[in-house]
Nucleic acid binder design. Sequence first.
DNA 1: GCGGTTGTGTCAACATGGCTGACGTAAAAA
DNA 2: TTTTTACGTCAGCCATGTTGACACAACCGC
Lengths: 168, 168
Amino acid sequence: MADVKTGVNPLFLREEELRQGMELLFYAYRDFTAEPDAILGKIGLGRAHHRVIYFIGRNPAITVTELLSILRITKQSLSRVLSELVRSGFVTQRPGVRDRRQRLLELTEKGVDLERQLSESQRQRIAKAYRKAGAVAVEGFREVMLGIIDDEDRPKFTAKLDRAALKR
Amino acid sequence: MADVKTGVNPLFLREEELRQGMELLFYAYRDFTAEPDAILGKIGLGRAHHRVIYFIGRNPAITVTELLSILRITKQSLSRVLSELVRSGFVTQRPGVRDRRQRLLELTEKGVDLERQLSESQRQRIAKAYRKAGAVAVEGFREVMLGIIDDEDRPKFTAKLDRAALKR
DNA sequence: GCGGTTGTGTCAACATGGCTGACGTAAAAA
DNA sequence: TTTTTACGTCAGCCATGTTGACACAACCGC
C-alpha cells in the first residue's frame, strides 16, 4: 500500500491530482471569461450574449434549435438574449429554404465586429498558453478536455463534416 | 505564405486551433458543472454554494477575505451564500486566534458529506478523462491550463507551501 | 493612546440569466 | 387530415451577481 518513492498513500495522491484538475478548470474558466465580461458590461450586454454571438459566428446559418442544443438552456432564455441581439442589429434572421419554419441566424457586420472584439482577449489567452506549453502539451490538453466533455459533443472536435449544411 | 503541406493559409489553421481551444473550455465547463447543479437544485442550493463548500473543504480555516479572492465576487454576494450555508449547518465560523476579526470557516460533518457528494461526479469525470488520455497528456493539460490562468493564481498549483497557515 | 486601515457584516436596490408553465401559429410530416 | 415540429411570447419566479452606504471591532503604526 505504501508508495516507495514518496512514502505517501497513492490514493491520497490521486485525490490531490483530481482536485487540482477540478481547480484548474474553475480558475481557467473564471479568468477566461473575465475580460469579455468587462467589455460586455460597458455596452449593456452579458455573457449570454457573447455565447450566442460566438456560436452564430462560428456556425453561420445555424438554427435556433441547434443553438439551443449547444447552449443547453431553454428556448425562453435564449429568446430573450437573441431578440435583444436582433433588435440591436448584431444578428439577422431569415427563414430556412428547405424548412420555412426555421430561422437561420447570421451575424451582421456589426455582429462580426463585436464578436471579434470580445473573443480577441480569449484568443490571445489561449494562444499564449499554447505557445508557452508547446505542441505536445496542446495535444494532451485536447485529449483531456475531450475526455471531460460528454460523448455526444465530442465528434464536433474530430470529424468536421458540416452537419449543418445538410439541413438546409 | 502558402502552407505547402495543406495548401491552406496557416493563419487560418491557427485561428481554427484557437477557436477549438475556446470551445473545449466552454463545453468542458458546461458538462463539468451539470451534474452537481442538478443535485444542488434538489436541495434548494445553487452552484455558488458548491463553490463555497468546495473551497472551504479544500482550505480548512480559510478566512472570508481569502475566499473572496478565490471566487472574485463581492463580499455581499458571498455573504448571502455563506450565511445560508452556516444557517443550514454545512459550515461553521470561529474567530481567528491571531486576528480576532477574522471568521475562520470550516465544514461541518454535514458539510463534508455534501461536498463529497457534489464533487464525486466531477472527480469521476476528471479521473475518466485522465485515465483515458494518459500521464503525458495530463501533464500537457496541466501546462496549458496553467497558461490560461492569471499569473497570480498559478503558484497555487506549483509550490504548495501553506500560505494560509502562516496567517493564524 | 490616537488615527488610519482592515476584516467582516448588513441593508437596500438593481441587473442578468437561468427556470417553469401555458398558449399560439405556421409549416412539415405521417 | 391529424400530428408533430420549430419557433415565439407572456408571465412569474429564483439564483447570483452588482453598487453604494453605513457600522463596528480589531489591528497596526506612529
